[in-house]
Amino acid sequence: MKKEVLVFISENFADWESAYICAELNKPETRFIMKTLAVKKNPIKSMGGFTVIPDYSIAEIPTHFHMLILVGGTSWMKRENDDLKQVVDLCVEKGIPVAAICDASTFLADKGYLDDIEHTGNSLPYLEEYAPGYKGSDRFIEKQVVSKEGVITANGTSAVEFAREILKYLQVMQENELEEWYHMFKVGFYK
Results as ranks from 00 to 15, higher is better:
residue 147 S to D: 14
residue 118 E to I: 04
residue 167 L to V: 00
residue 142 E to C: 12
residue 138 D to M: 14
residue 130 Y to K: 12
residue 143 K to R: 12
residue 135 K to D: 07
residue 129 E to G: 10
residue 145 V to S: 15
residue 144 Q to Y: 11
residue 154 A to V: 07
residue 136 G to P: 10
residue 145 V to M: 08
residue 160 V to W: 00
residue 165 E to G: 00
residue 134 Y to L: 05
residue 139 R to S: 14
residue 163 A to Y: 05
residue 160 V to R: 09
residue 162 F to C: 01
residue 134 Y to N: 08
residue 162 F to W: 02
residue 140 F to S: 10
residue 164 R to H: 09
residue 120 T to Q: 13
residue 120 T to F: 10
residue 142 E to Y: 10
residue 167 L to P: 01
residue 169 Y to F: 13
residue 131 A to W: 02
residue 153 T to A: 04
residue 157 T to S: 04
residue 141 I to F: 13
residue 126 Y to V: 03
residue 130 Y to Q: 12
residue 153 T to F: 03
residue 169 Y to Q: 00
residue 120 T to L: 07
residue 156 G to V: 04
residue 123 S to I: 07
residue 118 E to A: 14
residue 144 Q to V: 06
residue 142 E to D: 14
residue 157 T to L: 03
residue 135 K to I: 06
residue 143 K to D: 14
residue 126 Y to C: 08
residue 150 G to P: 05
residue 168 K to R: 06
residue 151 V to T: 12
residue 159 A to K: 11
residue 160 V to K: 06
residue 151 V to F: 11
residue 124 L to N: 14
residue 154 A to T: 07
residue 149 E to Q: 13
residue 162 F to E: 02
residue 125 P to S: 06
residue 125 P to Q: 07
residue 127 L to W: 05
residue 167 L to S: 00
residue 162 F to M: 02
residue 138 D to Q: 15
residue 169 Y to C: 00
residue 120 T to R: 09
residue 124 L to M: 13
residue 164 R to P: 00
residue 166 I to E: 01
residue 159 A to L: 02
residue 136 G to F: 03
residue 118 E to Y: 15
residue 169 Y to R: 00
residue 148 K to L: 03
residue 153 T to Q: 06
residue 141 I to Y: 12
residue 161 E to Y: 04
residue 148 K to C: 15
residue 118 E to N: 14
residue 134 Y to E: 08
residue 167 L to C: 01
residue 145 V to Q: 11
residue 129 E to S: 14
residue 138 D to G: 04
